[in-house]
Structures are given as structure tokens and as C-alpha cells.
Design a protein around this nucleic acid. Sequence first.
DNA 1: GCAATGACGCTCT
DNA 2: CAGAGCGCCATTG
Length: 122
Amino acid sequence: MGPMRERSPDGSYGRIFAVVRRIPRGRVATYGQVAQLAGLAGHARQVGYALHALGAESPVPWHRVINARGGVSPRSLPGWERVQRDLLEREGVRFDERGCVALDHYRWRPRRSPISVAGGAR
DNA sequence: GCAATGACGCTCT
DNA sequence: CAGAGCGCCATTG
């Protein structure tokens, strides 16, 4: 009960991980979308922070999460962008010359939100 | 306990 | 159409 904020790797972040884990192969979702589906609308930044805490070898398909521009966010380590891009391309996601994917085509559209749709919002 | 940073998003100019 | 600024919250030093 209590004041346990659940800061463990499977705690409040688990909500975000649960959403990311639901992203089907060959599909992508934006940080803001994941945040909204996790019930943290507007906290897109926290999604990125949570994924960063996960690690590249995490069981969560972090590579399926991209920014609203449809591209992979620049990371501290050079070349990492290529890794995420390669993982997505391996799933069938194609990038254009700008290094962006067509969100209108690859964006994951869950029929049922992980959290209550609150009266069929959307 | 305060200050700065960060795998973002949206609006304004 | 492109660039810059502000907002949001959690983690780290």
C-alpha cells in the first residue's frame, strides 16, 4: 500500500514498458503516443527516460519507439541511430531519405487502449 | 534540498 | 516551410 512509488524497473515505468511491449512487430509508436497510452499524456519525455533506463538489451522492443517526426532521436553514442533503424528495417519498416518513417503508415493503432478508453476517447 | 540534464512535443514567430 | 522557445516530470550530481 502505501507510499511505495514503485520506482523499481517494473514499477511505474512498468506501465510504459507494458505499452511498448504491446507494439506489434513492424509497427512503430511515438514517445507521446506511448505516454498517452500509458496514462501519462504529455509526459513524452519520461517515456524516453524510462526507455533509457531499460538498456539496449532490454526485453522491451524499445526500438519501436520513435519521435513525433518519425525518426530516431539522436543519442549520445554515435551510430546508435543506425542500430535502431536497422532493427526497424529488419521488421519491414522503411525509412525515407530524411531518415524518417511514414507514421501515417507504420504508426501502431491499438483498438483498445491499455488503460480505460474513458468513454471511447478518440 | 537545490540545480541541471534529458532516447520529447507542441506552439509561436 | 523552418527554427527557436517553453512546458513536464524523474533521475543524477
